[in-house]
């Protein structure tokens, strides 16, 4: 469906992407993970044909996305990372205009999506909140039943309940055979929908795996609070698990795939609470990044 092959683009000031390659198969939900500024949006801009690569190419169903950009767009639904609509319109007018430009009668699906995402489409765009713009953007990307939907940070600005609705929406479309490319800086967001994911860092793809593999590579920090301070000390000394920090009755452990061992060790002690802390992407895959760097 989508082939990104050796994509390279350098900007003034040293930023850019180098030799980015991955393939997204028909009917697959592909995650594109990376911290802010890693090159996710730059890659997506090339896929959309907004930029000409220095080297390499992107093709969608065999069509080059730069030289055949207007034909390629028939296959794509797109949600930009930073949404900007045309000024002086309301949501409904904008969506109708876009449907005219897309050349597809999508009024039925559009109405259904608006109802699903629960927003007032007649709100003027300049009065819309970030989340509301995001919803209009999602409708715009889905309404014309494209074969490939490209979403740049789709859930930013959405509340948790709407994030859930969004995930359901993606899974329904996937069941119909729609292909997705979804970028994110949050692993949990990708985890729930994607089959495979690529991790990009400083403009290079550092990992390309299916979701199960990524989940087992994932490094989580688990905070265990023991009933007794002595237990905490005892645990830290004897468990053999990598201790990140320790204080009074609290021990923080880095876990990477070895959940069973953690549970077994903990079972010997009285435990007051367990917390899994949220981490940024680099921390989650720190171990993995380190290995890569050492290998180079």
């Amino acid at each position: 469906m989508l082939i990104v092959d050796g994509l390279t683009k350098h900007f003034e000031g040293g930023k850019g992407i180098t030799d980015v390659s991955f393939t997204v198969n028909q009917g697959e939900v592909f995650g594109f993970l990376g911290p802010n500024g890693a090159g996710k949006s730059t890659t997506i801009r090339h896929i959309m044909g907004f930029m000409k690569p220095d080297k390499g190419h992107v093709s969608i169903k065999g069509l080059d996305s730069w030289s055949k950009h207007s034909e390629v767009q028939k296959l794509i639904g797109y949600l930009p990372g930073e949404i900007a609509f045309i000024e002086g319109m309301n949501g409904k007018e904008f969506l109708t205009f876009l449907a005219d430009m897309q050349g597809v009668d999508s009024s039925v699906k559009r109405a259904r999506l608006i109802e699903r995402l629960q927003f007032d489409a007649s709100t003027p765009i300049r009065k819309m909140s970030k989340g509301m713009k995001q919803k209009v953007g999602i409708v715009a990307a889905f309404m014309h039943d494209p074969e490939l939907i490209i979403l740049d940070e789709p859930t930013s600005g959405l509340d948790p309940l709407m994030q859930q609705t969004f995930i359901e929406l993606v899974l329904e479309e996937k069941a119909k055979g729609t292909t997705f490319l979804m970028s994110s800086h949050s692993f949990t967001e990708i985890e729930r929908t994607c089959d495979r994911a690529a991790i990009i860092k400083e403009g290079r793809v550092v990992a390309l795996n299916n979701m199960h593999e990524l989940q087992s590579m994932q490094r989580k920090l688990v905070v265990i609070v023991f009933e007794r301070n002595d237990d905490a000390k005892q645990f830290a000394l004897t468990s053999g698990l990598p201790i990140v920090s320790q204080g009074d009755s609290r021990v923080t452990i880095a876990v990477q795939g070895n959940y069973n061992e953690l549970i077994r060790r903990c079972a010997n002690f009285e435990i007051r609470s367990i917390d899994v802390t949220a981490q940024n992407l680099e921390d989650i895959f720190m171990h993995y990044y380190d290995q890569k760097e050492n290998a180079l």
Binding site: F50, K74, M101, Q102
Partner: peptide, 17 residues
């Protein structure tokens, strides 16, 4: 339109630049 980014929407439709 380029500065604000709304050009992205015009270019994401099957119309040539």
């Amino acid at each position: 339109l380029v500065d604000q980014g709304s050009m992205a929407y015009l270019l994401s439709t099957p119309t040539s630049r």
